[in-house]
Simulated assay, not measured.
Amino acid sequence: MFFTIDELVRWLGLTVFEIWINLISFLIFTIMLAVKYDPDIDLYSNNWWMIFFPLFTGDALNTYFCVIIFIRMLSEMTLRTSLLRVSWSGTFLLMTFLFKFLLCKKLLGQISLDYSEVFAPLYILLQLIAVRACQQS
């Protein structure tokens, strides 16, 4: 059974626009990753930062969008709702950015963390999503 868009928006706390930005950036990342491992093309030989660039760009665009939404919600005098939204979006963006950053550093060999430590932000985010899903009616 597939989730509907309404369920995804409610559980993830993201808008449809933010989900599209994430999907497009992940598609570009996947294409660049496939090009990296193609033996005939030596475009991104050892530059993981360039391969992860679409994901970081997607995070930056989502952050910009969240700031705009926060300012618009504040101008409409919905302080509590805007603070809840910006705290959830900020946590979501911080955890995903931290995971991507640590994974890129691990792949380059710049840090000596285990993969369980690299994936820790995603584990935390999954726990928060589970709690949020249980709170929804």
Rank of each mutant, 00 (worst) to 15 (best):
Y37Q: 03
D38T: 07
P39S: 03
P39Q: 01
D40W: 11
I41L: 09
D42M: 07
L43E: 04
L43C: 04
N47I: 01
N47Y: 04
W48Q: 03
W49G: 08
M50K: 11
I51F: 00
L55S: 05
D59Q: 12
A60S: 07
A60R: 02
L61T: 05
T63M: 14
T63H: 11
Y64S: 09
F65R: 14
F65N: 14
C66D: 11
C66G: 10
V67R: 06
I68F: 12
I69R: 14
F70S: 05
I71A: 09
M73Q: 14
E76G: 08
E76M: 12
M77F: 11
T78S: 14
L79G: 00
R80I: 13
T81A: 15
T81M: 15
L83Y: 06
S87L: 10
W88N: 00
W88M: 03
S89E: 10
G90Y: 05
L94P: 04
M95Y: 08
F97S: 08
L98T: 08
F99A: 02
K100D: 10
K105R: 15
K105Y: 08
K106Q: 12
L108N: 14
L108M: 14
Q110P: 00
Q110Y: 13
Q110A: 13
I111N: 00
I111T: 06
I111Q: 02
L113V: 06
D114F: 11
Y115A: 03
